[in-house]
């Protein structure tokens, strides 16, 4: 019954999904579809492509559902990792290059999500916390990390764009992540980053 499965933790829902249960999969989408779409939108900068990527990612999740391994991380991290890979593919296929520069320059459309549930409110709180952690980084570290993760650029492309040696780019990535890791304590929702 709907009321029963809604009380299950992600990992338990995922077990039902792995058994081929469409209702459990729908619940998985309801829990993570918004974060997935938001990530895709952040990377490609337009809604239509972000919808395509989210759809592609969730169908791939459904079809490869037996490959989820709890030991290797939370369901949310797994889902977002798949969305990230799909978005990178789209960026590298050049589907969205017209919009990506705009996004990377910080010109972003804002769509305030409706606050519907406590979970959504907590997610938004978490997003603010992670953004705050990113904002504590020196500008050049934050930019290097964002170009790589959200822009899909390789270290050598970034080195060329920012006119600095590859070693410096790699160093900034490592130092930036290290600093972020320290800032993140207590920010991320419990149990969600394995």
């Amino acid at each position: 019954m709907a009321s029963d499965i809604r009380n299950l933790a992600d990992e338990e829902v995922m077990q039902l999904v792995q058994g081929g249960n469409p209702r459990a999969f729908e619940l998985l989408y309801d829990r993570h579809g918004g974060a997935a779409f938001s990530l895709a939108y952040r990377m490609v900068g337009n809604r239509v492509t972000a919808e395509d990527i989210t759809q592609e990612a969730f169908l791939s999740i459904w079809r490869s559902r037996t490959r989820y391994d709890q030991a290797r991380g939370s369901v949310r991290t797994w889902v977002l990792g798949i969305v990230h890979n799909r978005a990178i593919d789209a960026l590298r296929r050049g589907m969205v290059h017209d919009r990506r520069r705009e996004t990377l320059d910080g010109v972003e459309e804002r769509h305030e999500a409706r606050e519907r549930t406590d979970v959504e409110a907590a997610r938004r709180e978490e997003a603010r916390g992670v953004r705050d952690a990113l904002d504590t980084l020196p500008e050049e570290q934050r930019r290097t990390i964002e170009l790589a993760y959200f822009g899909g650029f390789s270290h050598s492309q970034i080195a060329e764009m920012l006119e600095m040696p590859i070693g410096t780019v790699k160093g900034r990535m490592r130092l930036g992540l290290e600093k972020m890791r320290k800032q993140l304590t207590g920010v991320v929702l419990p149990g969600e980053l394995a």
Partner: peptide, 13 residues
């Protein structure tokens, strides 16, 4: 690195 996708502005699909 795993936290990065959680930093984005949350939107409703």
């Amino acid at each position: 690195a795993d936290a990065l996708p959680r930093s984005v502005e949350q939107m409703n699909p």
